[in-house]
Structures are given as C-alpha cells and as structure tokens.
Design a protein around this nucleic acid. Sequence first.
DNA 1: TCCCCAACATGACCGGGGTCATGGAAATCC
DNA 2: GGATTTCCATGACCCCGGTCATGTTGGGGA
Lengths: 229, 229
Amino acid sequence: MKEFIREDKQAFLNSSRFCQGLAPEIIMDLAAISDPVIFPEGTIVSSTGDGYADVLFVVSGLLRVSMSSSSGRRVTVLLVKCGECYNLLSPYLANSRIMEAKALEITRCLRVKAGNFIAFVESHPTIIANLLQIIGSAFDSANSRILDFMEKKVENRIMRVLSTLHNKFGSPLHFTSVEISEIAGTTPESTLRAMGHLRDLGMIETRRGQIRILNPKALDDREFGDLSI
Amino acid sequence: MKEFIREDKQAFLNSSRFCQGLAPEIIMDLAAISDPVIFPEGTIVSSTGDGYADVLFVVSGLLRVSMSSSSGRRVTVLLVKCGECYNLLSPYLANSRIMEAKALEITRCLRVKAGNFIAFVESHPTIIANLLQIIGSAFDSANSRILDFMEKKVENRIMRVLSTLHNKFGSPLHFTSVEISEIAGTTPESTLRAMGHLRDLGMIETRRGQIRILNPKALDDREFGDLSI
DNA sequence: TCCCCAACATGACCGGGGTCATGGAAATCC
DNA sequence: GGATTTCCATGACCCCGGTCATGTTGGGGA
C-alpha cells in the first residue's frame, strides 16, 4: 500500500466518529502514533485469546468482529467500516478477550499500538467522552438484542438487521444468508425463509449475494431503532 | 441516614472495584464530590428516558438495572451490590438511555453528580483503565448472553444464572422465579420447570423465595464463566 | 467452456418452550 | 385468625423454528 503521508492520516482521522469535535492538535498527535496496515480479504486480524490489543481505525474495507462458541455457532458483534474503529477497549483489558476479527474484504487501517493509545488517551482526557459514547451505544445495542431474542420472532429480528444494514451500508446489501443469520442469531434456513416472506410482501428483492431494500420504512424498528453493529 | 464522615467515604470507596489500585489522593478527591443518598425498597431510581446521569456507588442494598420493551418484557442487565457502581457511562451520554434502575431493597449509595464525575475523570486519567475494565466485562458478558440464546436450552441458561448469582451473593439466594427468569431471558413457568429438574438432580434446594445451591461445580459454565450482572 | 462449489430455495419432521389454566402453600395484612 | 396476595408447582396444548434432506441456480476458476 502506498504510504499515508501525515496530512492524509489527519484528514482521515478528522472525519472519523472517534475524533468528532476534537481539537486539531489532538488529532495531529493521534496521527503521529498511527501506522498504516493492510489486511487481505479473509485475514484473521485477531482471534480469541491471542491478546491482540492494538486499536485499528478502518480506512477502507470491512472488519467483522464476532464471538464463537466451541460448538461452532458464531454471533457477529460489529461490522467495522470506513471511519469506525476496532478494539477501543482492548488496550485496557489485561485478560485477553473473546472476540475474533476477520477482514471480509481487503481492508486498510491505521493502527495505534496499545501502549501508545493508553498514553494518548491519558494525555488528552477529553477523548474519553467520544470513547465512552461509542462503547455505550454498543452496550445498549447488545442489551436490546437480548430483548429481541426474548420477544421477537425470527422474521422481526431479520427485519431489524436488514434495516440497520441498509442505513449503514446503503442499498443493495452484499451479504449472504449465513452472514445475516449470524447477525440476527438464527440459522441460514430460517433467514432464507424469512427473507422469502419479506420478498413476497414486496419489502425486499434478493439475488445471489445481494439484497435490495425496497421499503426501508416498513423494516424500521419503532422501539429501539438501529443496532450498533 | 447517619451522615457519612469523610473518612468513612474514603474507606468505602477504597474497597470498591472502581477504585482498585488508585492513589489515596485520588480517592480523597472522589470522596469530596460524593454525597450520601438513600433509596427505600421499591424506589425507581431512574427510569427510561428521564436523563438521570449521576453516578451511584452502592454502599448497601441492591439496585436492579433493567430494560423493558413496550410489551412489558424485561431483561435484567445488572444487579448492583455493595462496592459496585451504577451509571458509569451516563455522564457521557447526551441522549438519555434505555435503562431503568430500581432499589430491590433499601439501598444506601454515594452519589457523584454527572458534571463532577466528568471533571474528576478528566483530572485523573488513570481512572480510565478501571472504568473501561468494568464496562468491558459487562459488554463481553452481554454478548455471551446473546450466544447463550442461540445455542443453549433454557435449563442451561438457568444454570449459568444460578452459578453467577451464587458466586456473587453466596448461598442461599433470595430471588423469585420471576427475577431469575428476567435474568435468564425466559418465562417464570419455564424457570420453575428447569429448577424443578435441577432439584431432582440434587443440584439445588428451593423454598419460597430462596434457592440453595448444593453443587456449585455442576452449575459452572465451562466456556464463558460467570456473567457480569 | 465446462466443472465445481457456494448460495439459494423449500419441504418434512418434531421437540423445546411459550402460553394458558388450575390448584396449593406460604407469607402478609388487617 | 381469617383473608388476601404472592409465589410455587404442574399439566395440556400447540406453534415457532432448528435440523436434516434434497434440489436448483449462478459465478468463478482451470
């Protein structure tokens, strides 16, 4: 990859959610401790228990953050796209966490080493607000998913997932039934059945590896809104 | 309530998880901005959308933090006991969150007003590590609950809940089937049936409002351990 | 171009658990 | 101490959705 020059890094960081509203000096400091890094499609960036603790800002591509059980079931926790970041918490957690990160496409990132990130945050405590806002919405989202499991049928969970993905990635969506099922917490078969029904209702169109949302309003979750994934 | 004197506050804060490893001066500063407050049993400390943003350190008693859907289903997110804290994130979140907090018993707390808390954290950035460790384990726990929904049967979820509660509160547990079901994400009937089976297996004994764990080892979750609730 | 694999699609089966209903026992209240 | 409420307990019903099986379609690679 062509090396980022410092101005590029600053311009990119300035547009990321993590840096919203920060003073330019602070962003400059962050740019100074970040290195470009690139992951080919399919790369396992970090896996369960490996203690990977660097923070990544995704410049382009897509990282899937998931956790799996020993029986092989996987739940997708985050889809980290351009402008978002991965592993904000890990620099602070001594015991290795349970997440795995994989590059679903070729993905370019800015990497900040764990130690540098901690020092950076401590010297610029105003960062904390942004950091906690990101963590907080992820936490609320995780808990609302638990409520969804308790009271929603599969089709409604799928609807919420499709609505969220549509608002995040636009239309058409490039996800397979397996990927959707790992977000919604169900099986590929049930996902296909549910999407078949939504197709009959005229809300979506599906092709191989592609989902087009025709009626975004109808998919909206009125109660808790979009997921933070 | 008898007013805390400053030495009491410091001694208490010093023993809380949030203050682990902090320098005495820092704990002194925190004590200086905390006020004692008391909630009678049944008090709704904060409810969905009210914008309550103060941080509470529970000195005695028990706070239940939960979120509910409009259909009335509730999931218990946290049980905040002596030495733990509630609302660590709220000072930083402008938009009001979706949690409700209720005092299950008469509960004494130390309260730190949102603005003071933010100022306190910014002037002592080393706090951040403790803060993020607490948030991080809650976040991981929430995601492991999602995995539980995908692959575990009700009885196994109940087992994990009982194991967690046993490690947190000792034996016997003073919870009803409704309370257990709101933690495990099921119905009171299914909770009673599952606990009936565990009783037949000799793992627990139950009386009205009381659960005695006879075989903690057998209830352990080998894969993800205890929940952070 | 052909082949192969991945993804889509759909049917059949069936079991876990949500729901409703009923009854009894233990605590609480006047 | 009787009455009322709360909680425990259990049975019957039945639907959702997980699982398995089978077949089709489409896209990419040699």
